[in-house]
Design a binder for these strands. Structure first.
Lengths: 249, 249
DNA sequence: CAGTGGTCTAGACCACCGG
DNA sequence: CGGTGGTCTAGACCACTGT
């Protein structure tokens, strides 16, 4: 045991030591170590990589929080079960979502205009009373050229801010536009999901029979500044879209 | 500023200091502090509560991870937006779920028996080849005496282990039985959600018209030991059940 | 520049687990 | 009992922010 590690923590690297150690350990978990196998103890890792125990624990905490490892008091730290496929829906754009599923994303812009926000939209975006309009974007989304979802997004854009059809078409992803133009990065979101059935309009756009099951997702997204940046309703064909989520205690 | 705090960290309490501080700060966030307001700096908190900076940061890390606070390097630590209602589906049992929604949970046991696992169930529960049967439990779930969901659970119980109808009826919650009898506590889970419509059998049990929209959730749950403890299919009436999830970067 | 959070050290004692 | 993770201290230096 305790043989010299092949990869070392470099104290002069700009990357923090705990993050280097995190990378090293994650590599070993994904490569060689078996599920339920005990990894070296925290004091062994101190010596192996010439870092303090605090630094070791900082790296381990990351790996535990991400589900790579689990601890048992008095026994040791162990490799968790292998991670399941891609864990979908980690605050991704539809574009990224489709790519993760191995489908070619596409979209058709149905409408892009400023509207007076409903009280529901007003509440979700936490708008002050003087805000009189928000940008509303309706899009039909495709995966491998087949219709999959219908998105209606409401964006709280201040007076001078605007997004044109051209920008959206060029980038494909609304999130890309928001990031590059307004430096808005999604930090967290609340989503609700429910089942519904297609009405005539939805059915014709999504190319399914009326009454077909649809998954309705409503999402409110907050930027890194913790201000609401988007409220969006998404309707998905049940036969082509499944939502996956991982839950941890 | 820096007036004496009304609540103190008690060094003799069995509860760790960082957790006491966590409780104190969370209380202030939920009570008085405003969103986007800066909280005292880490060094101020050290002095205010007579703990080390490490301990302060341990408490703050918890609050940041749970979305109560956010940090900005060089500026300070700030109160995040108020938490939305109860954040549902944090690995709760149906029983707890209903209580959180303010409904009285109920159930009718439809069937409880050992069956040969299908290949799907075998795969989800990571069963070895020699395992020849799993416990299958069908239940109709109620909220305030109205049918809401239809659950089919598959449990990988070893030879001697068993659950009787009486135990389930007495406890109400399957998770309660699993915890008290086998010390199985859910640690993480994968869920997939999709929309579907009620067939004749489902419609009659859930008391909705055939073809009504239903939310289908499939969940695989792992115990703290990271072994699968449950695979369950849940069908919910769309008009009575909505799924909520919070996502963080 | 002073003040903030981010990283890191070298210790210490405790609670829990297994032999 | 020795080894494990859990908690805690009193420092230190760095990187970033605002004035």
């Amino acid at each position: 045991m305790n043989s010299e590690p092949t990869t070392r923590v470099n104290p002069f690297n700009i990357v923090p030591k705990y993050h280097q150690l995190y990378d090293i350990l994650r590599q070993q978990i994904e490569d060689g170590w078996q599920p339920h196998e005990a990894i070296p103890s925290e004091r062994e890792l101190e010596n192996l990589y010439n870092v303090s125990r605090t630094t070791v624990r900082q790296a381990l905490n990351l790996l535990v929080n991400e589900g790579y490892l689990y601890r048992e008091h008095g026994r040791g730290t162990f490799v968790a079960r292998p991670k399941l496929q891609h864990s979908l829906h980690l605050l991704t754009s539809f574009t990224d979502d489709m790519r993760l599923r191995g489908l070619q994303p596409g979209q058709r812009l149905l409408s892009l205009k400023y509207v007076e926000p409903t009280s529901r939209v007003r509440q979700q975006l936490d708008l002050s009373a003087e805000v009189s309009e928000v940008l509303k974007i309706d899009r039909l989304r495709f995966g491998d050229a087949e219709p999959i979802g219908l998105h209606t997004a409401y964006l709280p854009l201040a007076g001078g801010q605007a997004i044109t059809e051209e920008e959206l078409a060029a980038r494909g992803s609304l999130y890309d536009v928001l990031e590059s133009k307004f430096n808005l990065l999604p930090a967290e979101a609340d989503e609700t999901l429910e089942a519904t059935v297609a009405d005539e309009h939805e059915a014709s756009l999504l190319q399914v029979p009326m009454g077909s099951p649809l998954l309705l997702i409503e999402r409110t997204t907050w930027a890194q500044t913790r201000r609401p940046m988007e409220f969006v309703k998404m309707l998905y064909r049940a036969d082509r879209y499944k939502y996956a989520v991982h839950i941890t205690r």
